[in-house]
Structures are given as C-alpha cells and as structure tokens.
C-alpha cells in the first residue's frame, strides 16, 4: 500500500463526501420500511465510508473504526438482533414475535418498531464485519 501523504485533492474530496455517506446510510436504514433499503444496505454504505477514509488517508486515518472496535460492533450488532429475539421470548411470545413487546397499543406499529430494532443491529453487524475483513485483507498493521 502507498505510504506517502494523501494528496490534498483526494483528502478534501473525502472530507466533503463522508457526511453525505453517513446521512445517506441513516436514510437507507430508517426508510427501509417505505422504499428499497434496510439494514444490510445501510451497513454496507457505512462500511464503505470507513473503508474510503482508510484507503485515502492511509496510514493514519483521522476518522474511522479500529479493528478492535469493529469486532465489538460486529458482536454487539448481531447480539442486538438475537437479543430482541430473546426479549420477545422473555415477554412470553415466540422468538422474534415483536408484537408482544410493550412498546405501544397497535400491534402493527409495535412490529414496525421491532423491525427497526433488528435492522439497526444488522447495520452495526454488517458494518463491523466488512471493516474487519477489509482491515485484515489489507495487510499487516
């Protein structure tokens, strides 16, 4: 990998683009109920923004996820999904039966909230794993 300083042009472009990436990722995640999108796509967009910064600002990115933090994200994200499943079991429903969670009156809305919860978990997991895999395949640190 190229160890020289990043060029000013690339550096500036990345600084300009990254906020839009992040906002777009959140949009894709939250708007998954009403348009194409959802956790996996949002996670990939987030991971790409982290990877882009690492590619351009190598070897010392000013912003991003370290490998250890990414592992924590991957574990906790997936656990969030499974944990919501465990919560629904604790509230007496079958696994992933979001309707039993005490979040509101209308069952469809509660289910939508549960869906949002697992999508957030998926986003975290996908982002963490892809950053980890990229990080490891890139080479030694």
């Amino acid at each position: 990998m190229n160890k020289s300083r990043p060029t000013t042009i690339l550096d500036t472009c990345v600084r300009l683009i990254i906020p839009f990436y992040l906002v777009y990722a959140i949009y894709v995640l939250v708007h998954g109920h009403y348009s194409p999108g959802g956790g996996f796509q949002a996670g990939v967009v987030l991971a790409v923004s982290v990877i882009l910064v690492q590619l351009v600002q190598d070897p010392n990115p000013r912003w991003g996820l370290g490998r250890d933090a990414a592992v924590v994200f991957a574990c906790l994200g997936t656990f969030m999904y499974a944990g919501i499943g465990l919560l629904t079991m604790a509230w007496g429903g079958n696994m992933l039966d979001y309707g039993v969670l005490p979040l509101g009156e209308v069952e469809a809305e509660v289910r939508a909230l549960g869906t949002l919860g697992i999508e957030i978990g998926v986003t975290m997991a996908v982002m963490g794993v892809f950053v980890v895999i990229f990080n490891l395949l890139r080479g030694e640190e």
Binding site: H33, S35, G37, T78, Y81, A82, L96, G114, T115, I118
Partner: peptide, 23 residues
C-alpha cells in the same frame, strides 16, 4: 407488520429468523 415495503416485511418479520441466520 406496518411496513409498506413488502420485501422488508417478509425479510424482517414473516421470515425474520432467516434474516437472523443471514446476519
């Protein structure tokens, strides 16, 4: 399920366990 996007509804609710496996 309260999701207008039916793919999301199937993915996250009707067949949510598959998606857990996928994650």
């Amino acid at each position: 399920t309260g999701a207008a996007n039916m793919v999301t509804a199937v993915l996250a609710d009707y067949r949510g366990y598959d998606t857990l496996g996928e994650t």
